[in-house]
Structure formats: structure tokens, C-alpha cells
Design a protein around this nucleic acid. Sequence first.
DNA 1: TTGCAATATCGTCATATCTCGATATATAAT
DNA 2: ATTATATATCGAGATATGACGATATTGCAA
Lengths: 104, 104
Amino acid sequence: MVKQPEPDLDEVIKALAHPVRRQMLEWLKNPQKSFPSQEHSFELGVCAGKINEKAKLSQSTISVHLATLQRAGLITPRKVGQWIFYSRNEELIGKFLARINSEL
Amino acid sequence: MVKQPEPDLDEVIKALAHPVRRQMLEWLKNPQKSFPSQEHSFELGVCAGKINEKAKLSQSTISVHLATLQRAGLITPRKVGQWIFYSRNEELIGKFLARINSEL
DNA sequence: TTGCAATATCGTCATATCTCGATATATAAT
DNA sequence: ATTATATATCGAGATATGACGATATTGCAA
């Protein structure tokens, strides 16, 4: 099992401080419901292209938002061939919530 | 008792997305410890000028940060004569935490 | 190899945020 | 009334963020 780093509060909060990125995280809570058109298994997460379709923004913009979420540790990428599947990093999200609950 | 509005998630998170503002909220958790030089009672909160002294930023900058926290509902101002005392709005903070815990 | 599909990166422009000093406003004290 | 103190607002400059189209990169398929 891969050890998760501690959340960097500043980076996580900044990543959350944009409605599009929060929206993405919300979609990823229920992949099959939010992305019914995905034909791949949901085992590894949701395909970046599907997130791109759903958010009405350019491919390059989506790529940057996903990178921001990933840098903060909020999502985990899994590369399979030409695709990248993203899923929520529940472990880090949980740690973040624990910290903000106790520190805020 | 004054009714508190629901937290506006976007405004609250954006207010939290700056280290200086988070620092101020942290200081306000323990006023007497964080502001031992304040001579006023802590009943009504911490005097804006004391926050200004502690944060090494200009008076106008501090004023803007405090206004941001206040707009988000995170702190409550109480004006007494020429001073303004700020305290954490624990009720709104609690509601915010509840929401982010369930929605994130 | 050549071409195609998925994603990342680059360059650019627009807008937002942060900070400051200067000044305005409000209250208090003389 | 005048002056002093506390805070807010203004205008400007610096930096950060968000969006885009164009292009680069990676991997797969023919």
C-alpha cells in the first residue's frame, strides 16, 4: 500500500477555492452516476476526457485544473495506455477534513 | 439572539485561501494568549489595531483582510467608540465545517 | 513508418488578488 | 473648534490565476 503524504493545508484549500474544481470532486464521488457514458470500467476512476466533456471548458483548461487537484493530493491519476483515470484520494481528503476540523 | 445566515461555501473557502487570514482566525481562537498586550476586556473580541500590530502588514491591508473574513461571516465586528473588536463567529464556522464535512 | 486519439505544455490575454501609501471618515479628547 | 486616534476607502503597481488556441508529447493502431 502506498503511503500518503500529509495534506498541505494551503495547497489543498487553494485547490478547493475554485468552483470548477469542487465540482469535479463532487462528480468523482459518484462516477457511475455522473459519467454514465464512460465505457471503461470504473475500477481505476474516471477518464480525463469524460470530465472534459462534462465541464464545458477547453481541454487545456481542464488539464490544468486536474493537475491542480492532483498536486494538492485530492485526486489520484492512473495511467492506462493513452488514458488517464482519476479518482478521489479519500485518504487525503479524510486527513484534510480532520485537520481543518481541529485547526479551524 | 441574532439569526446567522448559512455560510456561502464559495465565499468562505476563498476567505480561507489566504495564509494571513487563516492566521488571524487562529489567533482569535485564544485572544488572551495571542494578544496579551490588549488592555480592553476580551468580552467583545480583539481590537483591530492589535491584530494589525501582530500581523506585519500595513493598516490598510489588514483592514481589507478583516473585511474579507467578515463578509464571509467568519468573524463578527463589534464597534465600541473608535474601536472595532473582532471575534470568531463560531456558529458560522461550525456550520461551514458541517457542510464541508458532508459535501467534500 | 504514418497517422490518430488522449493528455500536457506553451504563449497570451483578461481578470482577480495582494499590498502599499495617501487620504477620507468617524469618534474621542482637549 | 481643533486635534488626535482608529479604521475604511481609494488609486496604483505587482503578482497570481483562469481561460483559450496552438502545439508538443505519448501511446496505440494500421
